[in-house]
Write a protein that binds this DNA or RNA. Structure first.
Length: 635
DNA sequence: TGGGGTCCT
DNA sequence: AGGACCC
């Protein structure tokens, strides 16, 4: 065991009670090695032997381990990297498409092993999996008297699916390191936590091997009982390896492995304690403002303050931390949260796997962007990318097109696609270049400003090409947003422009379900209706008049606002297929399906009063259908 | 110093 | 709408 010279005040307290470490879960954290570089290598395996760097603008965003051996590192300037390693292979990586695709594929692969779907991605290259249920299932199955010959079941239904392993030991490295002379005392195996961590480590190793054999990617893994600890402990052996944090996890005097492990970390290295919090914490224990590299916005600190220095500082605890860190604008409970982190406690759950992101954004940075004409051009480039991303990430997975084998020129679009989610909002952000100081220098700032607008419905059209939609989006939405953001006619100078689709509403979340909360449902329904803004051409006026369908909900008793004609009768799916190249006629433009009460195998249940538009997959109440149909007819 | 993301206020 | 955090 590690030397232990901490004070007795080690177990975190809150209002006199012990704050318990989470010991009931087994969690694995995956971190793909040098991810962008690995994606490039997977495409071009000959590069594996070369020093490889991925470039975005002027910097090396990541590089493979061969390059690191030669002195390159992340976020290094390209010029410097070339000086250090003249024969480095540099690949441009500003377009993230392939990295995003690889990330999605690996995530889906790991997800397929999960039983509880608690599988959370962070960035493109990290995944947590809560494997508690798998581990506990296997603990119940194993024979305590013959741990060396255990079979790990990966399926609840197929007992042959799995692998053999020795449950008496850990797979891979441990923290602290276990020497062979002090091999596990038999009684250790009676510690249920220890046994569960053993199983977790073997599962982690199996998944790592599968990731290599099936996907060709190596990763670094940590195994522990909460998100914080498994993420941190993985870093102990990098790359392409794994580390398990061994018990004991608790003690009266701080002589547990959690405390000794986390205590050695520089405070800013703790996930959740960013630059701002770390500086406040450093300033407190140093009794003076913490110094930092002013040349950088989020520069490295010049101080080394360890978790232990803070944790054992006089009067330290959640209340003191709340005083130091709290204040207007800060999340409440920050003191308790940070106190937890400093003690290795993290009760946040591994998030449920999601199939749509909550936001899609696309950005580019510029050396100089000043004229409105240039801005408009860039907005068009960004809009195309955003629309492509929306199609890639928000449409369900069927094939885009099927080329008719008889006639290559005749491309029949089989439009099985549905929107899985609708972003309600579009946001334009810029990063203005900071104005010059009197002395001629420039303050460095990465602050952005933004304006938002409702996402116009036409972007969801599956008939119109991305090019025409992008042009319309720029003209009708983004340029107006830009004028709102920068009312001055000129003088601005932008270093970055970002366009984002936000406020994602899951199409499935509008479906009904037994026992749903009615108030919540109505609120959500309102949200969705708000986004069903349609263009009403009822008047002679050529200018399109925006009509918010949600208004019609309130005005539903007003005869004038009711739809003049009833919706066409519902059409069965087989009759209602409309190719996306088809031009809908007024009589067939609509094909709304009512809830399918007679097909119980259909999981795609809607609310009793909700209808789905076959054209775009949108879900809406019956009174919204007429206006919706006219919108389609126009688009 | 990039091009993304999440959640909170 | 912005700010903090994460990669």
């Amino acid at each position: 065991m590690l030397p232990c010279n901490t004070t007795p005040m080690d177990i975190p307290r809150r209002r006199g009670q012990r704050l318990k470490r989470q010991l009931d879960s087994i969690i694995i954290h995956f971190d793909y090695d040098a991810f962008y570089a690995s994606v490039i290598e997977a495409e071009t395996p000959s590069l594996r032997a070369r020093p490889l760097a991925v470039q975005q603008k002027q910097i090396v965003v990541t590089c493979n381990y061969e390059a690191r051996r030669r002195g390159l590192y992340k976020l290094q300037l390209i010029t410097e990297a070339k000086k250090t390693c003249p024969d480095v292979v540099i690949v441009l990586g500003e377009d993230l498409t392939r990295f995003r695709n690889a990330s999605k594929e690996l995530y889906a692969f790991l997800r397929s092993f999960s039983w509880n779907s608690r599988c959370e991605r962070l960035g493109f290259d990290e995944v947590w999996m809560d494997v508690t249920d798998i581990v506990d299932y296997n603990v119940r199955l194993l024979n305590q008297n013959d741990l060396a010959n255990t079979f790990f079941c990966l399926s609840k239904t197929d007992p042959t699916e799995g692998f053999a392993f020795d449950a008496s030991g850990v797979a891979g490295h441990t923290y602290p390191e276990v020497t062979s002379t002090e091999a596990d005392a038999p009684r250790d195996l009676w510690d249920p936590l220890r046994l569960r961590l053993h199983l977790g480590s073997h599962l982690a190793q199996h998944l790592r091997q599968k990731l290599v054999s099936k996907k060709g990617y190596t990763c670094t893994v940590g195994v522990s009982t909460n998100k914080l600890l498994c993420k941190l402990v993985g870093n102990v052996h990098k790359p392409s390896d794994q580390t398990t944090l061994l018990p004991p996890y608790t003690s009266e005097d701080g002589c547990d492995n959690v405390t000794s492990f986390i205590d050695e970390h520089e405070v800013g290295k703790i996930p959740g304690i960013g630059f701002k919090l770390a500086q406040k914490l450093r300033a407190h224990v140093l009794q003076q403002p913490a110094d930092f590299d002013s040349g950088l916005v989020y520069g490295g600190t010049n101080e080394k303050v360890l978790v232990r220095d803070i944790r054992t500082f006089s009067d330290m605890g959640p209340e003191t931390l709340e005083r130091i860190l709290g204040g207007p604008g800060t999340p409440h409970g920050i003191g308790a949260k940070v106190w937890g982190l400093l003690n290795g406690c993290d009760d946040t759950e591994v998030g449920q796997a999601r199939d749509v992101p909550t936001q899609i954004s696309i950005e580019d940075s510029y050396v100089r962007l000043v004229a409105l004409e240039e801005v408009t051009k860039e907005l068009l480039v960004l809009s195309r990318s955003l629309l492509r991303r929306m199609h890639a990430d928000l449409l369900d997975d069927d094939e885009d097109l099927q080329v008719s084998p008889n006639d290559g020129a005749n491309i029949a679009a089989i439009s099985e696609k549905r929107w899985l989610a609708f972003p309600k909002t579009i946001r334009l952000s810029t990063r203005p270049r900071p104005p010059q100081n009197p002395d001629g220098s420039r303050n460095r700032s990465f602050a952005r400003i933004s304006r938002s607008a409702p996402m116009p419905n036409f972007v969801f059209s599956l008939k119109d090409g991305i090019e025409v939609l992008a042009e319309r989006l720029v003209k009708e939405t983004l340029v107006p947003l830009f004028r709102k953001l920068h009312p001055e006619k000129s003088g601005w100078n932008l270093s970055l422009v970002n366009v984002a689709a936000t406020g994602m509403v899951d199409a499935a979340s509008e479906k009904g379900g037994v026992g749903r909360d009615i108030g919540k449902m109505l609120k959500r329904q309102g949200d969705v209706l708000k986004q069903w803004k349609v263009y009403d051409t009822g008047g002679q006026d050529q200018t399109k008049e925006e009509v918010d369908v949600s208004m019609q909900v309130q005005d539903v008793w007003d005869e004038k606002n009711l739809e003049p004609s009833p919706p066409p009768p519902p059409i069965r799916p087989s009759e209602s297929r409309i190719g996306s190249e088809d031009i809908p006629t007024p009589s067939q433009e609509l094909s709304f399906l009512p809830e399918d009460r007679w097909e119980s195998e259909d999981e795609d249940m809607l609310d009793d009063d909700s209808y789905r538009c076959e054209e775009c997959g949108g879900v809406m109440p019956i009174f919204a259908m007429g206006a919706h149909a006219r919108w389609h007819a126009q688009n």
